[in-house]
Design a protein around this nucleic acid. Structure first.
Lengths: 197, 197
DNA sequence: GCACAGTAATGCATACTGTGCAATATTTGC
DNA sequence: GCAAATATTGCACAGTATGCATTACTGTGC
C-alpha cells in the first residue's frame, strides 16, 4: 500500500514532532521532573488534552516511539534459514534502513539521558515492542518452550542496540548502516564475558 | 553491627509485609489497575499517607524491594581474582543465602505477573539496584571504559536471575541454593545463541 | 463550489498518584 | 515517668491521565 500523505497526516506528524521537541528542550532546560505536561502542551502550541491524544504519557513524549518490524521483514525472517543471530541482525538492518532516524532529536535525547539518569529505564523500556518482536522471531526458530531464553536474547540485543544508538547520535562520522554492526560487536564482547568460567 | 530488634523495628517489618500482602491479594482479585493506593492502605489497616511512607509508589508495594549486596560481599569480590563471571555468580550466591526469600509472597508475585503482563517491566525494573551493583563490580575488573559492556552483562545476569526466581517460586522441590546455578545455565544458553554467527 | 461524514482539537469534570507540612500518638532510652 | 526520637495521620495541593460532550476542521462525493 502506498504512503498516503494528506494535509491531515502531515499535520499530525508535525504536531507529534513539535510536542516531542518541546518536551526535550524543556526537560533539558528545567530538569525532567520540573516540566509538567501543561508546560509541554503550551510550548508546543496545543492544549493539554491534545498532548494526551498524541502521547499516552509524559515519558512517551520525551523518549518518543521506537520503530518496529514491518510485515515484509517478518516474512523474510520466516523464509530465511541462516544462523539465528545472523538473521535477527539482518532483520534489524532492514528495520534501521527503513526508518529514517533523526540525529538531531537523538542527540537531544542522549544529552537528556546524561543529565537525568533516572530516565534510562524509560529509554530502554521504549524498546519494549521491538524487544517483544525480536523474542517472537527467535521463538519461531527455537520453539515456544524456549520463550524465556528467547526473551533473554532479545533483551541483550535491544540493550546493545540502544547503547549503539547513543554512540551513533554523537558521532556524525558514523552512518546509520553501521549501528547494527557495532551492536553485534558488543554482543560478541558479552559472549566473551560469558565464556570466562 | 548486630541486628537490632526493637518493637519498633519488628512492627515496621510487619507493616511493610502486610501492605505488600494486601496489595498483591487485591491486585490478584480485582486486577492491578483497578486497585487504588487507598484500597491497599485500608486493607492493610493504615492510612494512605502511611502507605506512602513505606513505599515510594504503588509499583514498589506490589513487587517489593529486591535485595542488594552487603559490604562484605563487595569486599570479598575485590579481594578475589577468579574469572569475572564465576566471581559475580559467587557474589550472587552470598546474596541469596543472606536474604531469606519468602516463597509464598514470590508465588503471589509470579501469579500476578502471569495475569497482568504489563507489570513485567516493573518486575525487572525492581532489580535495578542489584543490576547497578553487578555492573559496578564488573567495572572494578574491566575498567571504567568498559562500563556500557559491564551494564550489558549485568542486564543479562539480572534478567536470567529474575526468570530463575519465578521458576523457584513455583517449584517447591527446588532449594534457594540452586537459583544461581540455574541462572548460570541460562546464561550459557545465551552464550550459545550469541555464538551462532 | 457545497453539503455531509469523518476526524481532530478543546474544555470541563473527575479519579487517582504522590508530596509537604503540621498535629498527634507511640516508642525508646534514661 | 519523662523527654527525645520516631511513626502515624489528616489535610491541602500539584500533577497525571481519562471520559465525555462540544466545536472546528479536513476529505469526499456530487
Amino acid at each position: 500500500m502506498a504512503v498516503k500523505s494528506t494535509l491531515r497526516d502531515r499535520r499530525r506528524l508535525q504536531t507529534s514532532r513539535e510536542i516531542q521537541r518541546a518536551a526535550l528542550l524543556l526537560a533539558l532546560r528545567h530538569g525532567y521532573d520540573q516540566v509538567t505536561t501543561e508546560m509541554i502542551a503550551t510550548e508546543a502550541g496545543v492544549s493539554q488534552r491534545t498532548f494526551f491524544n498524541y502521547y499516552l504519557n509524559k515519558d512517551a513524549a520525551i523518549i518518543g516511539t521506537a520503530p518496529c518490524f514491518d510485515e515484509d521483514t517478518v516474512a523474510w525472517f520466516r523464509a530465511s534459514s541462516g544462523p539465528l543471530l545472523a538473521d535477527l541482525l539482518q532483520a534489524l538492518r532492514h528495520l534501521l534502513t527503513a526508518s529514517d532516524l533523526d540525529r538531531g532529536t537523538s542527540q537531544l535525547i542522549d544529552r537528556l539521558l546524561g543529565r537525568s539518569p533516572e530516565l534510562l529505564p524509560i529509554f530502554y523500556g521504549s524498546l519494549k515492542r521491538l524487544r517483544d518482536q525480536i523474542a517472537d522471531l527467535a521463538v519461531i526458530r527455537l520453539g515456544e518452550d524456549a520463550r524465556p531464553d528467547a526473551e533473554l536474547l532479545a533483551e541483550a540485543m535491544s540493550h546493545a542496540l540502544a547503547d549503539t544508538f547513543r554512540i551513533w547520535a554523537n558521532d556524525d562520522a558514523m552512518s546509520a548502516d553501521r549501528i547494527v554492526d557495532v551492536a553485534a560487536a558488543k554482543l560478541q564482547v558479552l559472549r566473551g564475558y560469558l565464556a570466562q568460567t
